[in-house]
Design a protein around this nucleic acid. Sequence first.
DNA 1: GTCTATAGCCGGATAGAC
DNA 2: GTCTATCCGGCTATAGAC
Lengths: 191, 191
Amino acid sequence: MKKSTLSRKQEIYRIAAQLFKEKGYSAVTMRDLAAAVGVKAASLYNHITSKQQILSETILHIAEQFTEGIEIIVQQDVDAITKLKEVIAQHISLTIDNPYGMAALNNDWMHLEGKLDYYLELRTRYEKRFRQIVIDGKKSGELKEVHTEILLYSILTTLRNLYLWIPKKGELKKEELIEELSITLIQGVEK
Amino acid sequence: MKKSTLSRKQEIYRIAAQLFKEKGYSAVTMRDLAAAVGVKAASLYNHITSKQQILSETILHIAEQFTEGIEIIVQQDVDAITKLKEVIAQHISLTIDNPYGMAALNNDWMHLEGKLDYYLELRTRYEKRFRQIVIDGKKSGELKEVHTEILLYSILTTLRNLYLWIPKKGELKKEELIEELSITLIQGVEK
DNA sequence: GTCTATAGCCGGATAGAC
DNA sequence: GTCTATCCGGCTATAGAC
């Protein structure tokens, strides 16, 4: 049946992403992956077409979600702080959904072979939307007059690396995390 | 002369760190490194002992600087906000000194073979000192009552990834960067 | 101190039996 | 759909000529 084939493929993708997070794409061998799945390396090829395709689908699926998401956020008729909070919430949601994929997105994008340009285009578009929110927020007086790129990258870096510690904080509810992280990133930590 | 041998070795280390930043340790071959240096792969071994040692020395040298630095900072008799600013300044200084080494420290530590445990010990010690500054700051009322780990990791992640964009911002002076980043991370971005 | 040649091993992927 | 066997190329590192 198609369903069982699909879930077998997805299981391989899921385990691959975990291994990619631990050692990076280049250091994970098909023999490693096969052992983690519980088969021999040759058997993987009944379900997948190549190692490269695992990486490519994993990364691009998430990158598309991010770029589509922020394009919806920027179009809304709300203030910049609200948009920033929605961006933070989107990062938290997507990271909770797929922390291992987030690791691949962050660390292994340069190993994309055929679709590197497409990935870079998605990332550039994402950063452009994010930057526009910051610029608008400074113009409207909602945000401080700090250097745009510093503000942009300091927030974005924290969000992009959430996968490093979110899995450990299973006890923290998603809504609490959004609230606390919004305070930390937007209002600062000083009382 | 010893001096020229040393600088040849250091040149190889420097170029290796640049390649490690671009593709990651595992994806950089000794042939890649040799080509970037301008010799054949076999010739590298007159100056270095192994690929692994390049990684190991690069990472541990920086990790030791961080851990030694924060141990001096925490011992000072100043308030928590001042200590936080000094930690930020240390990250900026060490990143400007060696941005490519910072990339290896962040992304390739898991490929350390013999000295992984030592690295992890240094990192744990560093995070422990940083956490203590946060806890003290909350106790003294200087810092908000947000979740300690959220505050810790959101600041630490931004600092650890400075190497990603600091090289591009060559026009920004170090003191300005320290000032602006301190504002962004500590006081927040909302006006 | 750099080179060519190569040892010895491991990589992704395929062929074909079951 | 999984297996064994294998292709073929690339990997780190060494040997030894120059």
